[in-house]
Design a protein around this nucleic acid. Structure first.
Lengths: 253, 253
DNA sequence: TCTCGAAAATTGTGATCACAGATCACGATT
DNA sequence: AATCGTGATCTGTGATCACAATTTTCGAGA
């Protein structure tokens, strides 16, 4: 009955592994098609294979990774069609969250949204693409969180996790990411205006517009982002890169 | 390069365990709040704890189970608020699927939908509640599958998995489930009409109506379905029922 | 130079064991 | 009779080992 504050509760190892992989996917540190192996990760993280196994299984459940007939793990690669489907789902799901956020809009989240967007503008001016993407993410989730629908937020998290390896790498394929980033800022302003006007429909439309607009930029580059093609065999498939393999990219750290 | 058909590919044990638990949840064989333990399940299924561990972790990832601070597993219990949120999410997500299905509607799925609905009517007349729920499920997923959006279908599967323990048990709390079942049939006819008319908006509205209507029946009974309340302690919580405990219900078989 | 095949290395899966934390059962103490 | 403490039991977590399937490597044969 003591008010024991400080529930430090440092998570289990498998949770830590899971969160690091999740962050790596969110940030685009892992490319679609990259293979991930249990032992290699365990060695790199200094644990036994067990926690890694469970973390990978969880990511498979969230469709962030796939398990080939091979049983080997890979960052889920998308075809253009799948990417478009994902963006369509995002438009309606995140549109719903935006609509609800507009209903519950408060000056507090209004202020924070403005801050995130300002940070995004600053990052654009400084040419810090990573910071831009980070600010963009914060803006969106600040909004979605304001909807106060935990289960909906979970779904959105899953969508971003799957889209991360693409969205966070796609801007590198653009000649001038700046103009792309700036249009994002404009959409964000539209979203804030809709929320300030307490208009759910406008907010949903604005979010959908933001998503669709960015999708237009990326659609053509979906293929370019994928890791070197894995050959498609029969009962199982493809090679497994294990760990280093040439300073490629798969940096789980 | 041989066209080896018959990919019987009897899955791994963990997959089998997962699917059985999934089915148990879908059918409402497990009540919200029921506790599930690794060793008990492993013993009952005649395997080692390993496959069960991974299956449970996966279900946790899908929010079908929760892990208390205790680390013990429980079938996710819902508050009324959470249940309503879930139903709202279902309305827009499944509404989207219905809309897309309406666009792609074919006489083939029209025929099959009619069959499922007919089966539902027959089951109602015979008073076979379980068969009613089964036919209802087939009807919905026949429709959603027709949308041809695999990722959206995955999300819907997750929603049903979480709702299963409630929806599949709630009709038992009704005085006369028949009138509830029959209204479902009417909504289904509305849905089919909308699809036949190739009207995405009407299809989405009809699905949302179906979901909301059923939610109204269940809302009051959310609390009644939950398994006996687990006491909420501090760092972790509640007892673990392990296995039999008095012929209660948790039949994973 | 290319093709084929067998050994070697790598992969995920499953079983078993050890362990820390939590819960429960039971008995001594007040 | 009620309360508290102590040991027994149960829980999930992590480590280690064994194994079958697969992939890769590499050398023999054409």
């Amino acid at each position: 009955m003591i008010a024991d504050l400080g529930p430090i509760d440092s998570a289990t190892i498998q949770t830590q592994v899971y969160q690091r992989l999740r962050e790596a996917l969110f940030n685009g540190a892992l490319l679609p098609g990259d293979s991930v192996t249990i032992r290699a990760l365990a060695t790199r993280l200094g644990t036994s294979p067990m926690p890694v196994r469970e973390a990978l299984q969880r990511l498979v459940a969230e469709k962030a990774l796939i398990q080939l007939p091979n049983r080997t793990f890979r960052v889920t690669p998308f075809t253009t069609e799948m990417f478009i489907e994902l963006m369509r789902v995002r438009m309606t799901v995140e549109g719903m969250a935006a609509a609800e956020a507009a209903r519950r809009f408060s000056s507090r989240v209004e202020r924070r949204l403005a801050q995130h967007n300002a940070a995004m503008i600053r990052a654009i001016e400084r040419g810090q693409a990573d910071a831009v993407m980070r600010a963009n993410r914060r803006f969106h989730f600040e909004l979605y969180q304001a909807a106060d629908m935990p289960q909906l937020l979970d779904i959105i998290n899953g969508l971003w996790l799957r889209a991360g390896p693409y969205l966070m790498n796609a801007h590198r394929s653009l000649d001038d990411p700046t103009i792309f980033f700036r249009s994002g800022v404009l959409f964000h302003e539209r979203i804030m205006a809709a929320c300030a006007a307490r208009s759910p429909k406008r907010a949903a439309r604005a979010i959908a517009g933001d998503i669709w607009h960015s999708a237009r930029f990326f659609r053509r580059n979906v293929g370019k982002i994928n890791a070197p093609y894995p050959p498609e065999r029969e009962p199982r498939t493809s090679t497994a890169v294990t760990s280093e393999e040439g300073g490629h990219h798969e940096s789980v750290r």
